[in-house]
Design a protein around this nucleic acid. Structure first.
Lengths: 340, 340
DNA sequence: TTGTATGCGTTATCAT
DNA sequence: ATGATAACGCATACAA
């Protein structure tokens, strides 16, 4: 068992070297498992490390190597969404898994106030991380610009409208939205509404565009309601408005499953049966989709794969590879359940 | 606008000093907003900083100050739970808010594999963080022991059974469980079952103990089913077993809202009306509780406050205060809705 | 109020 | 294969 040490006296390489009867250089070589070390030296050093309870000082190491072996994940969400968004967890796990394999530490930084913005910016530019993945950034996001200017290897999951010069990975929201809307139309619905959200990101705009495209001539602007968040509560609000302005609707495309869940409860309250009276479809294929009654027909989003891919984009840059600046788009699939 | 710099040539204090025509010491003093700096020097330095695009090197700074102004949050959860647990988000925001006010950066580290354990342990002991909050640690958790031995300022949210020497904050699970069970009994239920989970933490054990206590003589071990996770899926499984072994039950206490949601769907499938045939109560007062039909009667858990308090415990230690080793318990409240 | 000099704990370069 | 020694970029004690 390592000797109990007070926090004020941490063992250094010097201590280990003295104990093992070798030089600092040799200890360092053992630590970094370099080639030219004798078996005798190695075992002596390893024993000494254990005896003095040595742990490497990251700051000193980072200072000279100019690397931290860490990659940041920026999550910038309004409270409510962060708590509810079921994709974030999967994306995070996907990122972590890719980084872990490459022996990088993922550190997540949440931005929840203006104070946070400044502090996180310093953290990133200060060298605590070698790269960064940004998730769900919105238009006008200051952190995105800080990162773009700093030149630190980065990748977005999703693509904020106003930032260029950073590669991103996402899905083809427009095609997916068009596809599920067409599927909904194929069930015979004639007056289909949409609850649109997140119009400050291209994902939100594209879902609306796909919806519009699918409807073609039959598109009716009155049947579209805009809400601020991809949340259950916004779904409730949106559906109420829709039902008010167009009580004759017989189909709804909600821009997320959470919105659809909210809409579903409002429809139920209003005495509309789903899918008999109104066909309802969502987006994300999140945990929501299988918990509603009836379960939601929706678009499956490969959240874990999105995260993994973004992490790989950062890792590639860290290796000095040129990854280009365009977007990478992963496939979605329609999952048809009972809500339409 | 700052001059565009290649990543290979970052400006240092020397560059700023040269530009401003002062010494490194003065620049450093400006950077740390110390008292004895002339107005002239300050403005000159600030201009120079901007002109050369200087950003502080965190590694160098940490090396000499022996502090990082960062606090880690360890989240160690099986995949499914991490994605579903609605409390984690609130706890995280509570922690972040407290740390942010004290100008500390919260960095979240998720443990999702054995590789992660070793890497995170190195990250923590290496000095990347000054303190750490551990959430939902389980018995036998290696990270908990690493932290305990390292002597790094720490606090648990919840309390793993086998770790001493680290302060923790939680709720009185036993009293809360007893209270809601008694409330359920007061509705006239005679054969109340429990879906218990997380028995490798004291929270899980205490909820079971509270349930047992409330029932007193009427306790029947056959009416308790143990499931591994606090998840919807486990709720489904648990309720199936319960319905199989004791089809005559008329009340259920699920150890979490997610479990209750799963149980509710099974009851519905089985043709049991809630609350008419079976009274159902949950635990957590999470988002689940208000989304089920009917909404759940449950125990409100002050998740945000728990996180904030844990962060404050770490901050106090960072200030050199003695916070003791005991637990801090925050109040819960019963929220009675329509499921019982 | 400011400048100078030293050291933080590593890695890396050079001898040997 | 190993040992000395010089950075890395900053804060700080001390001198001025």
């Amino acid at each position: 068992m390592a000797a109990r040490r007070t926090p004020s006296t941490r063992a250094t390489i010097n201590d280990v070297a003295a104990r093992a009867g070798v030089s600092r250089g040799t200890v360092s070589r053992v630590l970094n498992s370099e080639v030219y070390v004798s078996e005798a030296a190695r075992t002596a050093v390893e024993a000494a490390i254990h005896e003095v309870g040595y742990v490497r000082n990251a700051a000193a190491r980072n200072l000279v190597t100019r690397r931290s072996q860490a990659v940041g994940l920026i999550v910038h969400e309004p409270h409510s969404l962060f708590l509810e968004d079921p994709n974030i967890g999967s994306i995070l796990l996907g990122i972590n898994s890719a980084l872990s394999e490459a022996d990088y530490q993922l550190v997540s930084l949440v931005i929840d106030s203006d104070r946070d913005i400044a502090r996180v910016a310093e953290y990133l530019t200060g060298g605590f991380v070698d790269g960064v993945v940004i998730i769900s950034a919105r238009a006008g996001d200051p952190i995105g610009h800080v990162i773009a200017e700093s030149g630190i290897p980065a990748a977005f999951v999703g693509h904020p409208i106003d930032i260029e010069g950073i590669p991103y990975v996402g899905i083809d929201n427009r095609s997916a939205a068009r596809a599920i809307t067409e599927r909904l139309m194929a069930t015979g619905r004639r007056r289909i509404g949409m609850i649109a959200a997140g119009l400050d990101r291209d994902s939100g705009q594209d879902r609306l565009a796909g919806f519009t495209e699918a409807l073609g001539d039959r598109f009716d602007a009155e049947l579209v309601v805009e809400v601020p968040l991809y949340s259950y509560g916004s779904g409730v609000d949106g559906m109420r408005v829709l039902l008010e302005t167009r009580p004759d609707l017989d189909g709804v495309f909600a821009a997320s499953d959470a919105l659809a869940a909210g809409a579903l409860d409002v429809l139920r309250e209003a005495g509309r049966s789903v899918p008999a009276d109104v066909g309802l479809v969502g987006f994300d294929d999140s945990a929501w989709a299988v918990r509603t009654q009836p379960p939601l027909s929706t678009v499956h989003q490969p959240a874990g794969a999105l995260g993994r891919r973004a992490a790989e984009l950062v890792l590639a840059q860290l290796r000095g590879e040129d990854v280009g600046l365009g977007g990478t788009f992963l496939d979605t699939a329609i999952v048809w359940r009972a809500s339409a």
